[in-house]
Simulated scan of single mutants.
Amino acid sequence: MSKSCTVGKIINILEQWAPKKLAYDWDNVGLQIGDLSAEVNCILTTLDVNEAVVDEAIEVGAQLIIAHHPLLFKPLKQINFAEPIGRVIRKLICSNIAVYAAHTNLDIASGGVNDWLATCLKLEEVKVMLPEYEEKLYKLHVYVPNSHVDEVDLALTHLGVGQLGDYSECSFRIQGTGTFKPEQGSDPFIGQKGEKEYVEETKLEYILPEPLIKPVITKLINVHPYEEPAYDLIELANQGRVQGLGRIGKLKHPIRLGQFAEQIKNTFQLQGLRITGDPEQIVAKVAVLGGSGEKYFRQAKRLGADVYVTGDLTFHQAQDAEALGLALIDPGHYIEKVMITGLQNDLKVKLADQTLDIEIVTTEVNTDPFIYM
């Protein structure tokens, strides 16, 4: 496995999972500082980028910082080295450290921040709370000589082709005879130039989501024995994966609100949190949205949530939710820190799939500005 690659290649892998098109238009995701062609052998994951995090990146030898909150969010009118942001930018550039922000695109993406939060809360039957996108599905037909069927199938399903709900490696196979005549300039794997060839082949059929098309076709061309593989891509009317903000699911065992709040406090190692509602009431259905999600409490209620977990709740919104009979738990904005280890674990798998063995280090800097007294 390779121990290094470029900033650009790592970003391509990350954006196949959480493409920038998922981000809201007010957001600033993507490469913030750096060179796409720069070599990377160590990545630091963090919620925020401040001077302490940059110093940490220098210390561990990271060439790329992947953050959730963008370092550059509002337009800069100047870069003053006497100001905190100016010092950070200068230190990053002088140290050849790139910064990439995966913010609302990672919130919305399947397997991103809100799914990590739902996992931490041990929710079952999890669904998207605020649908934003529905992935298009395609049917891939590819014709393979029988001698190479298993090799091609393994390569494609390894990329995620043929996933149907909780079932993986799903395909359909049809036996038949392929015909072709190699012309001048060809370099046939089977047959002779100028002579029509008949080959016993298998037609493999798979379903795949739109984001996988490019890597799958690239892999297909590389692994298929034919110089010109024959394949078809057909857009389907089937419902694809829904992506969006927030998650809603059920607890395995209903629990009192006060007990659930204590579990959240322990799970996220919080000094304190705020709740509305009767601590003795039983909660079974839970909505969660990382960051600042107070404006979506009505959607949580419409979906039948007993309690809504989100940060940065304000007084009047909390009163309105209470009047609707929806309990609230505010563990603070900083619970989004789940992305630090979540990104490390999942990105390691995705890099390994590309035969890349890049070190990924999680920050030890606490960027939460609040202290509870």
Rank of each mutant, 00 (worst) to 15 (best):
Q175Y: 15
D306E: 00
I264D: 07
Q192K: 07
I58T: 01
N146I: 02
Q184H: 11
E15S: 15
S37H: 11
A155Y: 11
V223F: 13
L257Y: 00
I255Y: 09
L251E: 04
L326T: 09
R247V: 14
M339V: 12
E280K: 09
Q78H: 12
V199E: 14
L326Q: 06
G246T: 09
L220P: 12
Q319S: 04
K139R: 14
F189Y: 14
L47F: 03
L44E: 06
F172K: 11
R173T: 07
K139P: 11
Q299K: 09
V49Y: 11
Y133S: 01
L289M: 04
Y372T: 07
H158D: 12
A62H: 02
T177N: 13
H69G: 07
K252I: 14
G112F: 02
G246W: 12
T341W: 10
N366K: 05
F260H: 02
F315A: 13
Y206H: 12
T341G: 10
A82R: 00
S171W: 05
K21T: 13
V309M: 03
I97Q: 08
E169A: 15
L347C: 08
E294R: 08
N266L: 08
I89L: 13
A155P: 07
S2I: 15
N50E: 11
F297K: 00
P131L: 04
F370R: 08
M129T: 07
Y167P: 01
P70V: 05
R87C: 06
E294H: 10
C170S: 03
Q319T: 03
I190C: 11
G272W: 00
V161P: 10
Y167D: 01
G325I: 04
F370H: 10
L245C: 09
E134P: 04
L137S: 09
K21N: 14
L72M: 02
Y334W: 07
V149N: 05
K9F: 15
Q281D: 01
E201M: 13
C170E: 04
L31N: 02
V365L: 11
I248G: 09
E364Y: 01
Q163D: 12
R298N: 03
Y231P: 03
A98L: 01
L257N: 05
Q281I: 05
V216H: 12
I174M: 15
D357L: 13
Q63E: 04
H69Q: 04
G61I: 07
V152N: 01
V216W: 09
S186A: 14
S110F: 15
R87I: 01
D278K: 02
F189H: 10
Y308I: 00
P75L: 06
D55Y: 01
D150C: 12
K295M: 00
F268P: 08
I207G: 00
G160I: 02
V88G: 05
L313F: 07
P19L: 10
A98H: 00
A52I: 07
A321Y: 01
L14N: 08
L303W: 04
I358W: 05
V283I: 05
G311M: 02
L251M: 03
P84T: 08
L233F: 04
Y334N: 10
